[in-house]
């Protein structure tokens, strides 16, 4: 039965790392994708605007 435990540990140690790297890369690409810049800037400004009531 020890085999199963070793296997899980091995999996966690190797694929876990790949998973993490891939995910980090994905996030960076998404945030720094040039065409995303505009909506992000707009979003950042949006909360500063007047916000008296919901939009109709």
């Amino acid at each position: 039965m020890n085999f199963e435990h070793e296997m899980l540990v091995g999996f966690a140690k190797s694929y876990g790392l790949f998973y993490l790297l891939a995910l980090s890369l994905l996030v960076l690409v998404y945030t720094y994708w040039p065409s995303n810049k505009k909506p992000f800037d707009r979003a950042a400004r949006s909360i500063i605007d007047d916000e008296d009531r919901p939009w109709e």
Binding site: S24, V27, L28, F40, I48
Partner: peptide, 15 residues
């Protein structure tokens, strides 16, 4: 003032 870098806030979030 708007947040300094909206992008940094996203990277921070996923991190």
């Amino acid at each position: 003032r708007p947040i300094y870098s909206y992008r940094m806030s996203i990277v921070g979030f996923w991190g």
